[in-house]
């Protein structure tokens, strides 16, 4: 691990000011992904600002009947919150489908959104990777790509977003609240928060330097049956090969987002109109334009079959 200095934040504004004005500075909360990457020297912050003391750990009702989740709420506390379990079951289920009890106890909501990808070449510092060393090339294209993205990729990068929570947040149309160095706050739709690689795969999030996630907001509950089905190589504690987050309503309509297949949770709203026609109709529209590698082409039919299972669960 490279040397770094450390301080505890005293206020959001001071923390943001420090990170925005200090080259190489980063926020740290749970640290479960950041410290892992620092040990590999993939992340090399020169200064860490510990934000855990900031008053951003509450879950509050919003005026419109939704919820505002502080960025420092742990994954465990979010999954266990009575209103999340009752009204946003897809979110609770997605969170507990990821990681382990130990990691969920430490990981924060804001940090979960900012977790880096799990491409084997991003982790292998002996190999080119455009995310880690911009311009060095993508080793995954033509390399080991079984776990990686099949759609939304570019000639620069085919890494996928490994998260579970974000897939549920996408199906719920959550928003990410932030504060920047000028003290301005904004609300970024989750659909726009995670970026596709294009020609700049090293830029993964729609955040300005020093911009701090303060909360995630949920709209009023959608009702219906809520599902998160994750297909992986082990029964527990493994990243998704394919996952499906769904809210299915009694009238046959609903919302669907796929995880494990793209650089961001993959939701095509227009395809949801085909839900009454079944999984094949939805999946063919969702994966139109997919560009899989030979090793991961199986994910597309697997995603369709997983969706079929979820639709059947919804009807059961």
């Amino acid at each position: 691990m490279k040397p770094f200095t450390y301080e505890r934040a005293t206020s959001p504004a001071a923390a943001i000011e420090t990170v925005a004005s200090t080259p190489g500075a980063k926020f740290i909360a749970g640290g479960t992904n950041l410290l892992d990457l620092m040990k590999f020297e993939i992340e090399r912050p020169t200064h860490l600002v510990d934000v855990r003391g900031l008053p951003l750990a509450a879950i509050e009702d919003t005026e419109d009947g939704g919820l505002r989740i502080g960025a420092l709420v742990t994954n465990t506390d979010l999954a266990a919150h009575p209103r999340i379990k009752r009204d946003y079951g897809v979110l609770s289920r997605a969170i507990v489908a990821g990681a382990t009890g130990q990691l969920r106890n430490k990981a924060s909501v804001g940090g979960n959104l900012l977790q880096r990808n799990r491409c084997p070449y991003f982790y292998n510092t002996n190999m080119p990777c455009n995310k880690r060393v911009p311009g060095s090339g993508c080793s995954a294209i033509g390399g080991i790509s079984r776990s990686l993205a099949v759609i939304g990729t570019s000639d620069s990068c085919i890494a996928h977003n490994p998260g579970d929570m974000a897939v549920a947040l996408r199906v719920l149309d959550a928003a990410v609240e932030t504060m920047n160095a000028d003290g301005q706050t904004r609300s970024i739709p989750i659909a726009d928060f995670l970026l596709l690689p294009g020609e700049t795969p090293e830029i993964e999030f729609a955040l300005q330097p020093g911009e701090l996630i303060t909360a995630v907001t949920l709209r009023p509950p959608l009702g219906g049956t809520q599902h998160y089905h994750k297909v992986r190589d082990r029964a527990s504690y493994a990243f998704a090969i394919v996952s499906v987050a769904a809210v299915l309503l009694e009238d046959g309509t609903g919302r669907i987002a796929f995880g494990g297949v793209a650089p961001k949770p993959w939701r095509i709203e227009a395809a949801e109109a085909a839900l009454p026609d079944g999984a094949e109709a939805v999946a063919s529209a969702v994966f139109e334009g997919a560009a899989p590698m030979e090793d991961n082409a199986f994910k597309i039919p697997l995603a369709e079959r997983t969706l079929a299972l979820v639709i059947a669960e919804g009807k059961a």
């Binding site: 465990t76 999954a79 266990a80 009575p82 379990k85 009752r86 079951g89 609770s92 289920r93 507990v96 489908a97 009890g101 527990s236």
Partner: peptide, 16 residues
């Protein structure tokens, strides 16, 4: 303690 506090797991049936 996690079970007593109502923390669900991946295999929990009824979340509430």
């Amino acid at each position: 303690d996690e079970i007593k506090k109502g923390v669900p797991s991946h295999v929990t049936g009824d979340l509430s």
